[in-house]
Design a protein around this nucleic acid. Structure first.
Lengths: 324, 324
DNA sequence: CTGTTAGCGCTTTCAG
DNA sequence: CTGAAAGCGCTAACAG
């Protein structure tokens, strides 16, 4: 692989001149510029990224810190990543997927970090510009930048919509307990109940337990709670869980939405239309989340001002699964 | 950020000794080792990846060359990526997503490359160990390594299964024409027909045209062809298309599978169970593809022998959408 | 077994 | 406007 010296020699100039014409970092005469470019072309010179990074200490890479050690991403994360990738490639940044393996003996000087999936116990990150996807916990929220959905608000709006049509009891199957997002949603859920005391209904709230598949979890939880409660409305975390609920409805010959009204708080599988009747859901605008987060991070890397919290509004999509 | 000199000074040894204890590249006395480790710990030393790479010319990064300029991945690719990521993190490799933007002024010395989605017009890649996901075209196949499904074979097996129950006419809605995979599938499809002349049926074959959503494409194509042919069996490229077919069936009050038998050649949305009746499909074992490809690439990087072509067997999953 | 030293390829000050 | 040279942090002979 040809290097900068080869080009310099061939063009009959010095290393630094070559560097300058390649980086537009100083004026070089038209003639010299041409000579250098031609020489480079001739021997197919490409600047060595690693040497450059070592010298400049700017890597042009953004890392995504994944929350799983194997590096698997769930559908939500994959969609967000697509959004991130879009602006990264526009802005000339590389995207590095970083599984959460504990070792870290090496210092990989990425320019910025995107931290997936905040939990209640995350610690502050230092020495790298970073942005959270979702709300960080209260220990670090003051000092953290993040991009998030309007989780609490959308739950309130959703409940305002649902409440008039709940007959007796609503069940909320929320995300896992340790995720900040599930807290925010629960908050919105509770607020709406309190603010609408005129509707005298019963509420049930459970968190998804990792281990069972979401569909199975939903099915089993519902079977259990069904016996002792007159559940007629169900909010689930995602369409995967909804699958379990639909199956329960079918097994027990319950009609949706007449006897069981259901909505999912995210459509990670993009499966709404596969359900009969089509599943109502909340569109989290994952790509937009990704684009916003990447755009902000890049600004931050370049020391431009950005707001600490950026909210992407989610949108309630009403389909046939909701009782009128 | 502390560097190797700081550690050396603090521990009272030389740079190279520090380097050696960190890389296990030469024996160092127990005592010295300890001193170095402690010193490193104390000042929070992490070896600088870029300097190391520049010196060794081994980056420990594997690139995924994406086929879209925006860098978006479809579901199939995302699932394969999960498999890749798994072995990468096991083996200490980073994974870099490389959108297909034409610039490339820089030479980013990745150790190896995974090339997604071969088409009929791809050119040879030089100077980087690489493996294709899927069969490369015939211009380059002789010199290329790849991991692929048994596309042709599985189509033959599928047709053997289907043929006895086709009444008059089968429609195959294949992947886009420029992809090698669609050629292989068509090959298998035709072979099965020829080898089973005793079944006197009519066949229709169309390639998906990018632009329309797969579901819409399927719906419209079917509407068109339906008028003039007595189609009773349909093979579609994926479950997204199947959605269009199910909708067509519903709109025209055709019962599945009695009047219309249907199977998808991939279940990219993992949506089989969302259909009523559940959609039959071919399981492409995406994660396994990803794991195999990464494992092979890493071996290749280390100059170990690997076979040029590795096949992952796909599996036909029969559900209620197929007439018996 | 440990230390010296010459690179890896590029950027960037500083003289000219 | 151009070039010489120091340095980015680390590795790997090689000498001791």
């Amino acid at each position: 692989m040809a290097n900068i010296n080869d080009v310099a020699k061939l063009a009959g100039v010095s290393k630094s001149t070559v560097s300058h014409v390649f980086n537009n970092t100083k004026y070089t005469s038209e003639e010299v510029t041409q000579r250098v470019l031609e020489a480079a072309e001739k021997i197919n010179y490409k600047s060595n990224y690693y040497a450059k990074t070592l010298a400049t200490n700017k890597s042009q890479v953004i890392g995504i810190q994944l929350d799983s050690p194997t590096g698997s991403m769930n559908m939500f994360q994959q969609k967000v990543t697509n959004g991130i990738l879009k602006v990264c490639s526009d802005e000339g940044y590389y995207l590095l997927l970083m599984p959460n393996t504990a070792k870290e003996k090496e210092y990989f000087p990425i320019d910025g970090l995107i931290q997936m999936n905040p939990t209640l116990t995350d610690l502050e990150i230092v020495d790298t510009p970073h942005i959270w996807l979702g709300r960080p916990n209260y220990f670090i929220i003051e000092t953290s930048y993040f991009v998030d959905n309007d989780n609490e608000k959308v739950m309130e709006r959703l409940m305002d919509l649902l409440l008039p049509n709940i007959k007796e009891c609503v069940l909320f199957m929320n995300a896992p307990e340790d995720m900040t997002v599930s807290r925010d949603r629960e908050q919105g859920f509770s607020k709406a109940i309190i603010n609408n005391k005129e509707f005298d209904i019963q509420t049930l709230h459970v968190n998804y337990q990792r281990g069972l598949s979401p569909a199975t979890f939903a099915y089993e939880t519902l079977s259990e709670l069904w016996k002792e409660n007159n559940i007629d409305t169900i909010i689930v975390d995602n369409d995967f869980m909804a699958q379990g609920v639909y199956k329960f409805a079918m097994d027990n010959q319950l009609s949706i939405p007449e006897e069981l009204s259901i909505i999912a708080v995210s459509e990670s599988l993009e499966s709404s239309e596969f359900f009969t009747p089509p599943l109502s859901y909340v569109d989290l605008k994952e790509e937009e989340l990704g684009e916003k987060i990447a755009a902000n991070l890049i600004k931050k890397i370049n020391n431009q001002d950005i707001s600490k919290r950026e909210i992407v509004k989610s949108e309630i999509k009403i389909k046939g699964s909701l009782r009128e």
